[in-house]
Structures are given as structure tokens and as C-alpha cells.
Amino acid sequence: MLLIPCPHCGPRPEIEFRYAGEAHVARAADPGAVNDQDWAEYLYFRSNPKGIHFERWRHVSGCARFFNCVRDTVSDKILTTYPAGEKKPDLGTLMKEAGR
């Protein structure tokens, strides 16, 4: 079970959270102008990386807020979490902090 540091409540066990898929997948500003392939990209296609993954979680049994998380999908180690709406953290700095 993961120990997930909610940016609002601190570290809590995984069972308090719901996973909410890849982060920073933005809905088009003008949906009417989007073609079928780009809709498919937005709805269904995911980067699914073996390594660093930016993802959303929701602390349903705590503050109930969505937030973003950076996790290594090989080791399942969490590098950092940050509130929804903030910019992607710099990966180089994160890796240095994690000592890699």
C-alpha cells in the first residue's frame, strides 16, 4: 500500500484516496474546433510511461480535493505531490532532491 502525502492533509494510506489517471491532460479551449483524432487523444490515449508519471489523485476520505502526484511507475516511489492547478514541477530538480 502506498503512503501518499496529500498536499493539504499530509501523509495518509492509499485506501483513503482514489486514483484519477494521468495529470495535465487539458481539455481543448474550443471543443467545436477539435477534430476526431484530437478528441481520441484527449479522451483515450495516454503516455503510460515506464518511469516518471504525472498523475492525479483525490483524497476522498480526507479533504476530498484533487491534487497531482509525481511517481516512478517502476519502483512506485512518490517523488512529490502538489495542489491541482499548479504547473508541472521541474523533473531535473525533483530527481536531484530524490538523489538520483
Binding site: M1, E14, R18, Y19, H53, E55, T73, V74, S75, D76
Partner: peptide
């Protein structure tokens, strides 16, 4: 619940 390549999962 989450995507992973670890070939292990949570005990819960």
C-alpha cells in the same frame, strides 16, 4: 488502483 510496471501490488 494506479498504473505501474512493478509486477507487485498492494497487500490490501
Amino acid at each position: 488502483a494506479y498504473t505501474s510496471y512493478s509486477q507487485t501490488g498492494g497487500l490490501h
